[in-house]
Computed example of a mutant assay.
Amino acid sequence: MKTHSYKGTSVQMLLALRLIAENALAMVDKMKAVRAKWDEAYFKTLIDTIDSILKNEFAIDPSFLLKEKTEQVQATEQEAKSALQVVKTQVEIEFRNEPIKRDRILSTLGLTFVKQIGKASQVELVEMLTCFDKNLTPTLKTELSNVGIDDACLDRVCSFSETFYTLNTEQEVLKVGKKDISAAISEKLEVLYDEVINLSKLASAMLPNKLDADKLTYQRALVQIGYKEQKGKNDTK
């Protein structure tokens, strides 16, 4: 049975919304320029509302949790990009005389999703890591090993597929919540989610810089706080 309209648990959703609000507050002048109501007071009130729900309903200190999570996600993001680039460079060099095979391998491992791995967004990085881990079959791994690409190098990239999602705090922390959320709180969460999602959609259309708009997307925020989509399982409160 569907319990809510948003992706992730209630706690994950609230942490993602808070991150979006913080990003908006950090560029409040740009936000006000496109919509007068998006001023400092608006975003501070939004953050206070989210903090209040997290503390009172879920006993979570969001400022500490998000600070720790964001720092570690950013550090691991750079390591993962570096590991992917190392593999891509080796494939390009080792199969330089076999362009068809080279391109097939790069595509299969998700190493052609973006032109420059170093500039990949977090969502794009997750897609690459997932594709790499899923498609690095024993046969392909042997093929790469035969030309001198170290197994440890390949295994390191695969390890990031899981590690990237489980940073800072145990996953159970993000699953914390009352088993029975009152109807009033459930409705309040839906209203809050709708408000921020609409803000995100409007910002995407109105902000001239798309990199700024990307900082306000729900999917990006979910990835930053460590959300991992589990196929075949329904999200819980």
Rank of each mutant, 00 (worst) to 15 (best):
D214A: 04
E92M: 05
N23D: 09
G118K: 08
K233N: 11
H4D: 12
T89H: 06
K69Q: 06
E79Y: 15
A83C: 12
L25V: 14
L140M: 10
G232W: 10
K179S: 15
S186T: 00
K55R: 01
T45S: 15
K67S: 01
P208C: 08
L25Y: 15
E40R: 15
V196F: 10
A221R: 14
D61R: 15
N168L: 03
Q116H: 09
Y218L: 03
G110K: 05
K141P: 04
T137Q: 05
I47K: 12
V223Y: 06
L140V: 06
S82K: 08
F43H: 03
K119Q: 13
I50G: 12
L106T: 00
K69V: 02
K233W: 11
A59M: 07
S63G: 07
H4K: 15
L154S: 04
L199E: 03
V191S: 01
S107N: 14
L25W: 13
V34S: 09
L66G: 12
K88Y: 02
T3S: 14
T139F: 04
E92Q: 10
E68G: 07
K237V: 11
S121H: 02
L25T: 14
K175Y: 04
Y218F: 07
Q224H: 10
L207Q: 05
N135V: 12
M13D: 00
V157C: 10
A213Q: 09
M31W: 02
I100L: 09
T139Q: 03
T89A: 06
F160H: 10
M27P: 02
K179V: 15
K37W: 12
G148C: 01
K69N: 02
H4S: 15
F58L: 10
F64W: 12
A152C: 13
D51T: 14
L202N: 11
E162V: 03
S200Q: 00
Q224T: 09
S161A: 08
V173R: 05
K175M: 07
T130I: 13
I197Q: 00
T70W: 02
V157T: 03
Q122T: 14
R102P: 14
V87A: 04
I181H: 03
M206Y: 05
F132G: 09
L211M: 15
D51S: 15
V87Y: 04
E229H: 04
T70E: 02
L66A: 10
V87E: 04
V87N: 06
V34A: 05
Q122N: 15
T217P: 10
T169P: 12
A221K: 14
D133Q: 11
K32N: 07
V176E: 06
A120E: 00
A75E: 13
L84T: 11
V73H: 00
K69Y: 03
P208W: 04
E143D: 01
L84Y: 13
V147Q: 07
S10L: 02
L207A: 08
Q78H: 01
F64N: 11
R104Y: 14
R220E: 04
S182E: 04
N23V: 02
N198Q: 11
Q85R: 07
S82T: 08
K231R: 09
A59D: 01
L207T: 05
V86G: 06
P99Y: 13
P138T: 12
T108D: 03
T112Y: 04
